[in-house]
Design a protein around this nucleic acid. Sequence first.
DNA 1: AACAGTTTTAAACAAGTGTTTAAATCAACT
DNA 2: AGTTGATTTAAACACTTGTTTAAAACTGTT
Lengths: 204, 204
Amino acid sequence: MKNDITTEQKIKAAAREVFISKGFAACSTREIAKASGMNVALVNYYFRSKMELFKLVFHDAMEEFVNSMVEVFRTDKPLEDKIRLLIEKEYDFLSRHPELPGFIVNELHREEGYEVDSSYFDKVLNSGIVEECQRAFEAGTMREINLVSLTLLIMSNCDFPFMSKNLMKGIHKLSDEVYETHLNNHKKIVTDMLISYLFPQKSI
Amino acid sequence: MKNDITTEQKIKAAAREVFISKGFAACSTREIAKASGMNVALVNYYFRSKMELFKLVFHDAMEEFVNSMVEVFRTDKPLEDKIRLLIEKEYDFLSRHPELPGFIVNELHREEGYEVDSSYFDKVLNSGIVEECQRAFEAGTMREINLVSLTLLIMSNCDFPFMSKNLMKGIHKLSDEVYETHLNNHKKIVTDMLISYLFPQKSI
DNA sequence: AACAGTTTTAAACAAGTGTTTAAATCAACT
DNA sequence: AGTTGATTTAAACACTTGTTTAAAACTGTT
């Protein structure tokens, strides 16, 4: 059949799984080959090297990671609602890809690591959200805050809870299931906290 | 001289540096040996294996990580001040050990990873802070929030900004120095946000 | 059926891995 | 000076690593 999954796709899919769950250094070409049901030579036949394959996987990961944000900014809503929706969507996205932020943050941290191609985030910065924040600052509807801190606030409170799952489970002696429900509670807490900080009620 | 740094200490110190900056999988015994100015055999002579050495390093890292919190809880201050001080001290600590949280979170994430010996955190949980929060809930001086979310709020907003340095530098095209100053600004923002969320002003 | 091009395989390569061996060096004490 | 024990060294072990080779199997076309 024509629309079967090709060998190339199988390998890339397996590589994605292995790379994201163990990291570049902690896995071998043979492990990826075995996970895809193929052999070592095929990995390099289609992708030239472990490194090239990794770059593809990392690139895809970054795209997904960023796109999940940009969608929200493109919607036609008041800024406050956009931020609410952003947090909501981020928690959704991270529930489906809980290992992504840790993978990205960690691989970027290795010194041999690749720099972030900033074009990934140009999408975000060119989505109009920056100007929208600027207007909100000037109109006094949003607390004045620089963009780095705004990014940090949102990402810290969305990504870290997923990245630190094992640590949190250890600290509080929780099962996977219980932690899931905590994550769900936490989403609301984070939303409330961020919204009330960023959009303070003006008391006359 | 008697109080020279011993070979054992040199190796452990070098191992700490290498393990924390590259992770367990991404470095070799020979790299650690070279970094300490010794040879491979000495590493295993003193520490039996790469794994045993890693466990020691990880253990120390965990202790430092936890101790930096517990100190604060032992002080004799109102709860709100303790939280302020905690954030302050965490940012201080993380400025000196910026790679620690990423190291811990990431090594705990590898499936072959060691579970968190929960005794590390028993120190925290037995420091009296839990009861103090409970009393504050009942007295209505603090927003009622479960301990998992409280931990998450504080750690997310303290640790993530250090863990995501390279990502943030990439997103916003910042130099090391500029990001440092952003971190300093962010500390105040985080403090304000957390305090005003956890200790809301009662409007009659 | 014969060809040509792509895909797959098993095997090999050199280099690097964690670990161990056995000999050499050192320090302290008789 | 000789003995004992701890420390250090170079070399080797068996195994895994990423990558390449060259032959085999498969595909579609004439």
